[in-house]
Nucleic acid binder design. Structure first.
Lengths: 202, 202
DNA sequence: GTCTATATACTGATAGAC
DNA sequence: GTCTATCAGTATATAGAC
């Protein structure tokens, strides 16, 4: 068991636990027992609990492409389809966890009320990576959207809808709330596409 | 200082603290010191900390009309305007707190990962009251919306957008994220109104 | 109903042998 | 780098006098 292994195992375990129970409700003892690591080892790699959180947020930030986008976009070419394929990925997560687990970054963002600047900026960076990826989809479909459409704002809006939809599905323990929200978003996007088409005939 | 006063002061203080610091980070000691109540008194009224939370959630649930809707809808008659007036109220909260405090229910909903059924259902009831109020606005404007519009789903969607917009503004500490999200929602609602008008001429 | 003192459990973090 | 033992602080909750 080399050093990189131990450090990595700590981070993977912490990632799991923060997702399941949140940051505040996860104790160092929880991380130690599940990862089969002893106190001395953890504090050898990390000065304190918050530094474990920083490590986890960096993993999310650096892994968004491989861990999140690639699996959901496999075999999906149309940029608009990609947007809803990603949202479908979140739906699957909700389903397999009985509407218990949602977006880990969103949960942390609302749980930690006064985050250290380092933590806050990492959460923001995660949001930016996410909404920028969606903005890229809107950019790729720019010729099918009304002229002057703000891809960045639309990317942020899709993130907003995902987070809100997850929040409601979790609170009600009912996937119907997620589905209805995504259906409204779908209606909006359809409307944008139709408006652009209508204008192009005018 | 009569009993009702003490109980009420505990709940008002807890409401403040849960909003500022969250549920987990608020200790009973915090509530006691700020409310100037002693341990024995609090435990006389509430069996435990979670029961204080239940009391707070009941206050939100019972006070949504007087505390939230009435102030934001004063002098606003048009149902569509009411929707955006309520959202403007959340914007004001963000502004006066330097983008620190958002929706108290949303924060609790994402902070508490495994809530007791009582707590979860009270959070859900708060969401339902909110989105039902908005659905009422869409109902009142039904004749200006495309036929067959789902007012309930639209009410839930507006809640979603509010929560997501607040989450991003808080995480970035930047009201611009809130404003852009609401602007996109405004565009969507405008589109709905225009589509209905166009259809009525067809 | 209010107040003080305190029980008990658990928290993040540390010291020092190996 | 790993392991054990443990510290000091704080959490929720309680007991019992008034």
């Amino acid at each position: 068991m080399n050093a990189a292994d131990t450090r990595h195992r700590i981070l993977m375990t912490a990632m799991e636990l923060f997702w399941e129970k949140g940051y505040g409700s996860t104790s160092i003892a929880d991380i130690l027992s599940r990862s089969q690591v002893h106190s001395g080892s953890l504090y050898h790699f990390f000065p304190g609990k918050q530094d474990v959180l920083v490590g986890v947020l960096e993993m999310y930030r650096d892994g968004i492409g491989e861990m999140l986008l690639a699996p959901n976009w496999e075999g999906v070419d149309d940029p608009i389809d990609k947007i809803f394929a990603l949202l479908a990925g979140y739906r699957t997560h909700l389903i397999v966890t009985d509407c218990t687990y949602g977006c880990p970054i969103g949960s942390l963002a609302l749980e930690i009320h006064e985050p250290d600047p380092v933590v806050r900026e990492l959460m923001a960076a995660n949001f930016t990576n996410w909404s920028t990826a969606i903005a890229g989809c809107f950019d790729a479909a720019a010729d099918r959207l009304p002229p002057g459409s703000d891809a960045k704002a639309l990317g942020e809006f899709v993130l907003t809808v995902m987070e809100g939809a997850v929040m409601q599905a979790r609170t009600y323990r009912d996937i119907g709330y997620f589905d209805r929200n995504i259906a409204v978003l779908r209606d909006y996007v359809t409307t944008l596409l139709a408006a652009a088409k209508r204008d192009s005939f005018a």
